[in-house]
Each structure stands twice: as structure tokens, then as C-alpha cells.
């Protein structure tokens, strides 16, 4: 009976480790709208200032968190790094994101949106806001679920009508993405995001 139990323990442990996933990331519903050109649109946002985990820049008056000791080095002047919790259209936290803004003679703005259960999006935006407000850009790279996609990204700030709940506004990121078998029309994608 002992030998039988030993074999049972060996097989049982192997079966358990094989069939029961040790990691199971929690998922929120993906809120994606299908666009007429075959692509899709998904909008993420961060509520300010509550979703800001970090803002670091050389000589910044009010870093977040307040105890952050950001390096004051000449090369970092004019740059700002932020970390946010990222929300979906239902205002639920779905990931974390970094935003890098660099000034100077060749300015740029970048986002890395990390959604643990889905993958990561890396977007490059124009440094200068568009005349209509907001910044436009494109998907530079993506991983896992987002890997085959490409398309346009638009960032815009929307001030809150009522800041009584501590939220002064939201930073919105709208993505118009298409799969590899669809030839993207940049003008069309931009128009979809503007809608």
C-alpha cells in the first residue's frame, strides 16, 4: 500500500503541476469597438492626479511620491518620466503605463502601456500638440496579444467638469489598430480617433 501511495504521489504531483496553471492573471473585459476599415479602437485613460504613481524630473518642485529622489544630472534636464495606473473605458484598472516626455531641440513623447494579462503597447507621439488639441502618433511595437497590430495613437487631456471627487481630469489614449492583413490608411485611422 505504501508503494502504491508513493507512485500515486509521484503521478499526482506531476499531473497537478501539468494541468493546474500556477499563474492565472486576472482579466477585465476588453472593450474594443470595430471600425469600418476592419480595424478596431480601444480607449484607455488615467485619472489625474489619483492614478499617477510617479512623476520624476530634474529639479521638480512636487515629485510624486513626495519622497522621490530624482537624479539631478545635466543630461536629464528637460525630460520627465511618469508612471500611471491605466484604466479601461469602464474606469477599471487594467495595467500600468510609463510616459516619457523629452524637450530640447529634438523633443518627443512616448508611452509604454503594460497590461499584464494581454501584453504591452509602445507608442511614439508627436512632441507638439495638434492644433485641435492632443497629440497624435503611432504604434512602434507591441507584444503578445497586441503583437500583430499596428496603427495610430492619440493622446488628449480632458478636464473634469466637477473635481469634487479629487479627479481634476483624465489623460486619454485612443488606439486605432489593425491586423497585419489590413492595409492601414493613416488618414482614415486618424479620422476614427478624432470621432
Amino acid at each position: 500500500m505504501f508503494s502504491f501511495g508513493t507512485i500515486l504521489g509521484l503521478i499526482g504531483t506531476a499531473a497537478l503541476l501539468h494541468f493546474v496553471p500556477p499563474v492565472n492573471q486576472y482579466r477585465e473585459r476588453s472593450i474594443v469597438s470595430v471600425q469600418p476599415n476592419g480595424g478596431n479602437q480601444e480607449v484607455f485613460h488615467v485619472n489625474l492626479p489619483v492614478d499617477r504613481v510617479m512623476i520624476g524630473a530634474p529639479g521638480i518642485d512636487k515629485p510624486v511620491p513626495a519622497s522621490l529622489r530624482w537624479p539631478v544630472r545635466a543630461g536629464l534636464q528637460g525630460s520627465q518620466v511618469e508612471l500611471f495606473k491605466l484604466r479601461n473605458a469602464e474606469d477599471r484598472i487594467v495595467g500600468v503605463a510609463s510616459r516619457l516626455a523629452v524637450g530640447g531641440s529634438a523633443p518627443y513623447v512616448e508611452w509604454a502601456l503594460h497590461l499584464p494579462a494581454r501584453g504591452t503597447i509602445y507608442a511614439l507621439l508627436d512632441a507638439m500638440p495638434a492644433a485641435a488639441g492632443g497629440r497624435s502618433g503611432s504604434l512602434r511595437a507591441a507584444t503578445r496579444e497586441f503583437e500583430p497590430l499596428r496603427g495610430a495613437v492619440r493622446e488628449r487631456y480632458v478636464a473634469a467638469a466637477d473635481a469634487s471627487d479629487g479627479i481634476t481630469g483624465r489623460l486619454e489614449l485612443a488606439m486605432a489598430l489593425v491586423g497585419p492583413d489590413v492595409a492601414p490608411d493613416p488618414a482614415e485611422e486618424e479620422a476614427e480617433i478624432q470621432q
Binding site: F2, F4, G5, T6, I7, L8, G9, L10, T13, A14
Partner: peptide, 16 residues
């Protein structure tokens, strides 16, 4: 027999 079986399972698990 039950105790032997349980000890065996624990041993098998530990071995694995």
C-alpha cells in the same frame, strides 16, 4: 492501509 497510503503519497510528492 490508509496510513500507509497517505505516507506513500507524501513520500511520492516529496520525491517528485
Amino acid at each position: 492501509y490508509v496510513i500507509s497510503l497517505l505516507l506513500g503519497v507524501v513520500t511520492g510528492t516529496a520525491l517528485f
